[in-house]
Nucleic acid binder design. Structure first.
Length: 117
DNA sequence: GATGAGCGG
């Protein structure tokens, strides 16, 4: 389960990020995106957790968690699809992976009006 | 060397 973590402090390290998520469950891998050589870290990272339930707790608890005087944002990653996307048509979460959203999903209705004649 | 919305290998 890939988790996107944003608003990370530049002082934060992958190890700390990993431990931060390990407090809520098992963390397979944690990485922080940054430039090649320079210290220009993008300020966001990714955490991989095998247990989905722990992922929920981690996201729920770490989303907006204040660390180093900075609040971090945690959510499910949308890109980087490791699997081949079998055909999960009934996800527990929304398509965006927002756990807090209740029912903001509005399918398009009546977009096709059938041309004249 | 600093930077603050963003999805990396």
């Amino acid at each position: 389960m890939d988790i996107f973590v944003g608003s990370l402090p530049f002082k934060l390290k992958e190890k700390e990020l990993k431990e931060l998520f390990e407090k809520f469950g098992e963390v397979t891998s944690a990485k922080i995106v940054k430039s090649k050589s320079t210290r220009q870290n993008k300020g966001f990272g990714f955490v991989d957790m095998p247990n989905e339930e722990e992922v929920r707790k981690a996201i729920f608890e770490l989303n907006g968690f204040e660390i180093m005087g900075r609040n971090i944002e945690v959510s499910l990653s949308e890109k980087k699809d490791k699997s081949k996307a079998k055909s999960t048509k009934a996800p527990k979460l929304n398509s965006q992976g927002k756990l807090f959203v209740k029912d903001t999903y509005k399918p398009f209705k009546g977009i096709d009006k059938r041309g004249k004649r």
